[in-house]
Every structure is written in structure tokens, then in C-alpha cells.
Design a protein around this nucleic acid. Structure first.
Lengths: 232, 232
DNA sequence: TAGATTGTTAATCGATTAACAATC
DNA sequence: TAGATTGTTAATCGATTAACAATC
């Protein structure tokens, strides 16, 4: 980035292409709703209708789309196909991204076979596990590789993303090896804060925490005596 | 705060026990870090040390904890055991929450067997699937029930939370049935916006979207020609 | 008392919502 | 032209960070 005309002093909003993280997180949803609309033959859609179908407000939708550019027509709405194309381009949906999964337990196993990835442009190209009993097992058309092969596997397949599906205790060590091997994007299912260099993107999905958050709401709703209830 | 002197007109911050959603989402992390500390014999911890280990700033940690009450000692720090107890109480970790899973495909299967739930107070008490070939299959010590049994299962087990692990197309219909049967907390893995009454809590985890967000960053990092790069 | 560290208030930052001028 | 709807600006809201007085 920054070809020859380097920014003068401090650039006011870095480049032009910085989408807020919250916007990026919503774009896949718009894309999938639009795809369904296109499949049902819809040619044009208003921000109101698309927002409704996506479960957001129309103001937020228009704001989100405005970061991509001006692809709507006032008084008319958005061309469905064209908007699909623009969102796909922004997200990098055009290409196929190779993914390596570390940990072939229940979750790693399920993720490797998960159809939802392939359909959205991700190919699981490798699956490794520390347990010798699991190594060699066939999962879909992959064979579980030994942990020792991790670096060689990354070297060979050059994954854009690595998924950590190991126990929490192993997660940091795995992350360190992934980073050292050149991986810059990690999706972790381990309930442990990962420490990585600033240029590495990490997203953590902790399934038990998700349930915990819901349990908290349930507890509040049913008014557990020790928590709420103290009013006269 | 305010035991008998109930707030006059509009209460300024609803009750007293409203934790910001962001705070609730971080409490499980603090709890697990503290548990590890307790296991290693640590009796007391400062906000600085706990924050560091949890991957947040000490200011944010203190703010989060202050919503629960004043459980630290100035000049000293927090008593590890006591803080564990208070967080557990706030989150509802004391009790065991029954969970029903709808959809016994790759993901539902893995979730039913996932050890991370049991260890955090959740018991999977039922697993249903629409596919007659899957019904009757044994998963852990559960047997996959037919979809028609959903209401009866809920009636019998009274789950605090239901997990939707069906294809996106089926998700809304499943949610409707869950809500009608009395479920008030839903964790959905289906990439579809669910429409539910206001008193129903829904959390959506879309695995493909998580990868998509990372792919976006990878694309930006490697500077795909069509996205950025247009400057003179 | 001197040093450490909490709990809280105020400042900052970012994201969402509302409103409307531009324009099809 | 009259009606519809975008793209954007300004207002609001909420969450994070900084700072520090209270207090162990």
C-alpha cells in the first residue's frame, strides 16, 4: 500500500477503503439475503426491504453500503445483481481461500466436514491432531496429519486462515507455531486469550461462553433470589 | 441500591443489576482465568494482573467488576476465591442448565458430544433431527429423536436454552416452534436472521461469516488489485 | 506514613439512529 | 412534475479509556 504519493501528515481517515469491523461483519449477511432474492428473480431492492430481510435498520444498511461506494439509485433502490457483485468483491468472495484446521476432536472433525464452508468459498486443505490415535483417520477426503507436520503442511498449502480447535491449554502454543509459519488469520474455538503480533488477525468463538451469556439472561428473567429481588 | 426508596419517575439506569451486554460477554473469561489462578494457588490478584491474563485493559476490567459490586480492596487487589464466587453467582454458574439441540448433522453431533459444555454447567438433555435416517442414532448417551417429538421433549426436559444447528432454511420454523413451546433463549448456528418476540434472547454464531471476516482482512493485507490500488 | 491499587467520574472514541437534501 | 429513495450529515447513544480521589 501507499504507492509513491505517501500521505502528507496524518491521513484523516487512513485510506478510503477502511470499513468498520461492524460493517464487515454484516456484509456476509446482506450478501446471502441478496443471493436468495436474486434466486427468486428480484431485480431491484430498496434499502428498506433489504434491511428488513437482513434484520437491521435501513439507516444502518445504507450507511454500511455507503462505505463500499454509491451503488444505489435514488428513487429506485439497488440493482440486486450489481450489489451482490460489489459486496462479493469487497469481501473477497470471488476467490477460494484455503483453510487448515488444527485439532481433530469433535469440533475440528465437524468443521472439516461442514458444508457451510465450501459453499462460501473456503476449502479445508489440512487437518492435524496431536493424538497419535487420531492421526491417519479419514475425514471427508482428508487424512488427519500429525502435529509435527504442521509447518510442512502450511508451507505446502499456504492457508489464508488457520482454525484452532484444540483444548484451551494447547491454543497458545499452536498459535505461536502458526504465526511463526506465516499464518496471519486465526479463528480460535479455544476459550483462551491468544497473544499474537499486531499484524495477525484473531477471532475467537467460545461456544460455552455463548451459552453462558444466554444462561445469564435466563437467570435474570427468572429472577434468581440472590441476584435481583431485594425491593420492598 | 435503593431498597425501599423506589426510584421516583423514570429510573435512570433501569434496576441496579443491568450489566452491559459487553460486560456479560467478558465475565466468563475472567472466571476461567481466575479459576486457573486459584488452581495454581494464587490468593490475591490485582486488576492489572488479571486484566493482562484476560487480554483486556485494567480500566475495563475494573469497570466490568464494578457493575457486580465492590469486591476488591484498595491497595491490595481482589481475593481470587471471592471474586470467582461473585462472578459465578452473577452469571448463574452455580446451577446446571439443560440444553436441547435441534439438528444432528455434523455440527449438532459435535456440540452434543462437546466436553466444553458439561464442564461449564450445561447438560445436553435432548437432540432432535428431521432426517429419519439420523433418528435413533446414539450420540454420547443420547438418542436422536424425531422432529415431531420436539414439543414433547421440551415439555419434559424444560431446557433453559435451545441450540439450532439446522440448515438456514429450516431455522425460522424451528425457532417458531421453540418459542411456541416456551423456550426463551436460543443459540443459532444457522446463517439466517431469526425473528422472535422481544422477550426471547437469540445469539447467532455463523462460522462461515467468521471466516469471511478473516478473508476480508487477508484480502486487504495482500492488497487485491481491484479493491484498493487505484491512486495515481 | 508512604506506596499501592481500587472504584468512579470525566473524556474520548466509535457505532447507531434520525433526518433530510440531493436526485432519480 | 410528484413521489420515492438514496447517500450523507448531524444527533444520540453506548462502550472504552484515562485519570485520580478514596482508601487500604
Amino acid at each position: 500500500m501507499s504507492p509513491e504519493n505517501t500521505p502528507r501528515l496524518r491521513e484523516p481517515r487512513r485510506r478510503r477503503d477502511v470499513l468498520p469491523e461492524t460493517t464487515v461483519a454484516r456484509l456476509p449477511g446482506y450478501h446471502s439475503v441478496l443471493s436468495a432474492m436474486a434466486a427468486s428473480g428480484l431485480a431491484t431492492v430498496s434499502s428498506e426491504a433489504l434491511a428488513q430481510a437482513s434484520g437491521v435498520s435501513s439507516a444502518m444498511l445504507r450507511k454500511d453500503l455507503s462505505y463500499l461506494g454509491s451503488y444505489g439509485t435514488r428513487g429506485v433502490g439497488y440493482d440486486v445483481e450489481y450489489l451482490i457483485y460489489q459486496i462479493a468483491r469487497a469481501l473477497g468472495l470471488a476467490q477460494d481461500w484455503p483453510v487448515v484446521i488444527v485439532g481433530a476432536g469433535n469440533l475440528g472433525h465437524a468443521l472439516a466436514k461442514y458444508g457451510g464452508f465450501a459453499s462460501r468459498g473456503f476449502s479445508v486443505v489440512g487437518l492435524v491432531d496431536a493424538d497419535p490415535d487420531t492421526v491417519g483417520e479419514r475425514v471427508g477426503d482428508l487424512e488427519v496429519q500429525p502435529m509435527a507436520e504442521l509447518e510442512a503442511l502450511i508451507e505446502r498449502t499456504r492457508p489464508a486462515i488457520a482454525v484452532i480447535a484444540t483444548p484451551a491449554e494447547a491454543a497458545q502454543a499452536v498459535a505461536d507455531r502458526l504465526v511463526a509459519a506465516g499464518v496471519r488469520n486465526i479463528l480460535s474455538f479455544a476459550a483462551a486469550p491468544l497473544s499474537v503480533p499486531a499484524d495477525v488477525e484473531v477471532r475467537t468463538v467460545d461456544l460455552a461462553t455463548e451459552l453462558q451469556i444466554l444462561a445469564f439472561h435466563e437467570q435474570r428473567r427468572t429472577g434468581r433470589a440472590d441476584m435481583t429481588e431485594a425491593s420492598a
